[in-house]
Computed example of a mutant assay.
Amino acid sequence: MYVAVKGGERAIENAHAWLAEERRGDPEVAELSLAQIREQLSLAVNRVMAEGSLYDPDLAALAIKQARGDLIEAIFLIRAYRTTLPRFGASRAVDTGAMACDRRISATFKDAPGGQVLGPTFDYTHRLLDFKLAAEGAVPPAPSAPPRREPTPHITEFLGQEGLIQREPESEAAPHDLTREPLEFPADRALRLQSLARGDEGFVLGMAYSTQRGYARNHAFVGELRIGRVTVEMEIPELGFAIEIGEVELTECETVNQFKGSKTEPPQFTRGYGLVFGQSERKAISMALVDRALRWQELGEDNLGAPAQDEGFVLSHCDNIQATGFLEHIKLPHYVDFQSELELVRKLRREAEERIAPREAAE
């Protein structure tokens, strides 16, 4: 749009050159490598992969470097690149019960079957600046054991054996693909979860926090939170069976929620669910809380008018790429629009002055 302005094309080229210089920073300082970003800023890489809907740590690291650390810009770059990739097929649903867990905790059972694994977490740190990191000293190796390789059953399965938690309905129908089809309302649960997984972490966190503060009457326990790697398999028609094509790191959260029952359902626990790429437990927990809040209708609960219960509001505003595009477009030239508004305001002022002048003269 600026190209139409006199000298605009040259100004844009200069802006690009200046941006590249600012991105590089002081040339006396060593340039960041993609490996450094991937390995040492892994949580940022995980967020870009999750909200960009593309599992590739190297590309996510490149996007972060190109975006100068602006994660929403990096997510935009990843999504744009993703649209250029051919699609060869779809993988099987991953089995998170077979996850090799680096972290697996429960807030509902102290002696969880399979054990609890604290893993790499900030939960028990003092949140004080560690100035030893500024000295760039070597980090001693952790004494932790290797991740679990045997299958770890989900804790909610044990509640299910007693019939104490709602059994999730099974469907043979393939879920809609939000990356290929536009979002439509009403959205089924699979589509809602896709939207939340791609949604902005801060927005989803805010919605989840609102449910805890009473805006949805949604009291939850973290039944289980697990982080680890799962195998991805794909059916090969020519072979007639599935083969392993790789593995991905995932964070999964299941919340256990109080439910007093309804006209159609007995008193029991219900659940919220969150699943995202990489280590991103804040996002997974937030997803689970919002997922449960959005299930009010299928569970026969009352709609309290809480923002997190409003499917249209939540899903229409959680995508940071859509939000950024709509927000930032207003800084682009709107010369014609503004000139028309300017003329309208001037006309209204003249008409108002013409009405007021005779009245003042009469007085």
Rank of each mutant, 00 (worst) to 15 (best):
R87M: 10
R87P: 01
R87H: 03
F88V: 06
F88D: 06
F88Y: 13
G89Y: 02
A90M: 10
A90H: 11
S91E: 08
S91Q: 08
S91I: 05
A93Q: 11
V94P: 03
V94I: 12
D95G: 04
D95C: 06
T96L: 04
T96M: 03
G97C: 03
G97V: 04
M99P: 04
M99E: 04
M99C: 06
A100L: 01
A100W: 04
C101E: 04
D102P: 06
D102G: 05
D102H: 13
R103H: 01
R104H: 04
R104Y: 02
S106Q: 11
A107R: 07
T108I: 09
F109Y: 03
F109I: 14
K110S: 05
D111T: 02
A112D: 00
P113R: 10
G114V: 00
G114A: 01
G115R: 04
Q116G: 03
V117D: 01
V117Y: 07
V117K: 09
L118M: 00
G119L: 05
G119A: 05
G119Y: 08
P120N: 11
T121K: 05
F122L: 10
F122W: 06
D123F: 00
D123T: 00
Y124G: 00
Y124P: 00
T125G: 13
H126I: 03
H126Y: 06
R127Q: 14
R127W: 12
L129S: 14
L129V: 15
F131Q: 08
F131R: 13
K132D: 12
K132Q: 09
K132M: 07
L133D: 09
A134D: 12
E136I: 12
G137A: 09
V139I: 15
V139E: 14
P140A: 14
P141A: 15
A145V: 12
P146L: 13
P146V: 08
R148G: 06
E150G: 05
P151A: 09
H154P: 02
H154V: 02
H154G: 04
H154A: 10
I155F: 08
I155D: 10
T156R: 13
T156F: 13
E157Q: 14
E157M: 09
E157F: 07
L159S: 10
L159Y: 15
G160A: 15
Q161A: 15
Q161G: 01
E162S: 15
G163E: 09
G163K: 09
I165M: 11
Q166P: 00
Q166D: 12
Q166T: 09
Q166V: 12
Q166N: 14
R167A: 14
R167H: 10
R167Y: 05
E168H: 11
P169S: 08
P169I: 07
E170P: 03
S171D: 13
E172N: 03
A173P: 00
A174R: 13
A174F: 07
A174G: 01
P175M: 11
H176L: 10
D177W: 02
L178K: 08
L178Q: 08
T179N: 08
T179K: 02
R180G: 14
E181P: 01
E181T: 15
E181N: 04
L183H: 07
L183R: 07
E184C: 12
